[in-house]
């Protein structure tokens, strides 16, 4: 009886001793050592198990139970301590691996389209959604296609609208607008209806400065059909401007003159830099001229192979570098063909 009581006391002492020892442990090595000492084969708990068969039969279950409880309790604490130590070790290592996240990343080479191409492609996308397809034509043109067939006879004062580069071959010039493509396209399409855009580089004999270039991209829209109206022109252009500059943008049409359209108009847009209050971008007027347009002149329709009694059409053109300049605040058009990587990589 006394012996039984002694063993129970011993078990209690073992547990107390072991837990005290465990509390001081903070490394996995020490923990493994502790496990060997307090839960290993030759540990005191295991010794108690060995002694149980020598005990009184009636006491054995009680003792066995008690020893098991102590063993389980130690194992539970061991697991907890192991968990704790692992966590601490991980936390410790993470702390030591801290980076300076403000150091710059290693940038891969990012390819980019030239800003002029980006703007052109955006316009293609918008107009493609509206049913207009890209049609290209040559840049070195004949006077006939650039002027004559567009209702601009030789020596006509309307020619003052375009300062022209002439080549040394008689009658061959650098196209001053993408409009010769109107004639090429009509010749190709007639008598089918037409709905195309004519993009590309055009040339003007000008003194170059921050807002004048000798070479720039233009996009022209051309729609020819049996029921195309001035109202359609206005509706189409307004839709285009809204998609390009945002649905809130305000526009107006005012009379203008182009030899190849009649009636002719220019579309102005409320200045996007100052919302129409007046600033340096819009020269204080609150309006920006963005495109020229009109109903295709009967003479041009005829020259294209369409009967102006039956067919009508509209055309509209805009300079796309100017659009880029407005949108991105580029203040000098000469940046576009200078190919300075410091400019190009901003887009």
């Amino acid at each position: 009886m006394e012996e039984n009581k002694d063993l129970i006391v011993i078990l209690q002492q073992i547990q107390q001793k072991a837990l005290e020892a465990l509390q001081k442990i903070n490394s996995s090595e020490d923990l493994e050592h502790w496990k060997a000492v307090f839960l290993g084969r030759s540990s005191e708990v295991m010794q108690v198990f060995k002694e149980i068969p020598a005990m009184e039969v009636g006491m054995r279950p009680v003792l066995g139970q008690k020893a098991n409880i102590v063993k389980t309790e130690l194992e539970k604490h061991f697991e907890a301590a192991r968990e704790h130590i692992q966590q601490a070790a991980l936390t410790n290592s993470i702390t030591q691996q801290k980076l300076d996240v403000t150091l710059p990343g290693r940038l891969p080479e990012r390819g980019r389209l030239h800003i002029a191409t980006q703007t052109l492609q955006e316009i293609y996308r918008i107009l493609a959604e509206m049913g207009f397809q890209v049609y290209r034509s040559r840049e070195v043109e004949s006077d006939e296609y650039n002027f004559e067939l567009l209702n601009i006879p030789a020596h006509h004062p309307a020619r003052d609208l375009w300062d022209t580069f002439y080549t040394k071959k008689d009658g061959i010039i650098l196209r001053t607008h993408t409009s010769p493509g109107q004639i090429h396209a009509m010749h190709e399409y007639a008598p089918d209806p037409v709905r195309i855009i004519l993009p590309g580089m055009v040339y003007r004999y000008e003194q170059m400065d921050a807002s004048h270039e000798i070479q720039f991209n233009q996009i022209e829209m051309l729609a020819v059909g049996k029921n195309i109206t001035f109202g359609d022109l206005r509706g189409t252009l307004e839709e285009f401007v809204k998609r390009m500059f945002g649905s809130g943008v305000e526009t107006r049409l005012r009379p203008s003159y182009f030899p190849f359209t009649e009636p002719s108009a220019e579309m102005d847009m409320k200045c996007i830099a100052c919302s129409g209050k007046g600033c340096t971008v819009c020269s204080g007027t609150g309006w920006l001229e963005i495109l020229g347009c009109g109903m295709v002149h009967p003479t041009v329709l005829m020259n294209g192979g369409y009967d102006p009694e039956k067919f009508s059409g509209f055309a509209a053109g805009l300079g796309t570098e100017r659009i880029s300049m407005l949108r991105y605040g580029v203040d000098d058009i000469r940046n576009f063909w200078a190919n300075d990587i410091r400019f190009l990589k901003q887009f």
Partner: peptide, 29 residues
């Protein structure tokens, strides 16, 4: 051509801004 010229005069004086905006009703080419 004169008719187109008159059309411009009429539209100009009527006011370009009073022309209702419409969508092209013509068949897609």
């Amino acid at each position: 051509i004169g008719k187109a010229d008159l059309m411009e005069e009429i539209t100009r004086l009527y006011g370009y801004d009073r022309i209702p905006s419409t969508r092209i009703s013509d068949a897609l080419p």
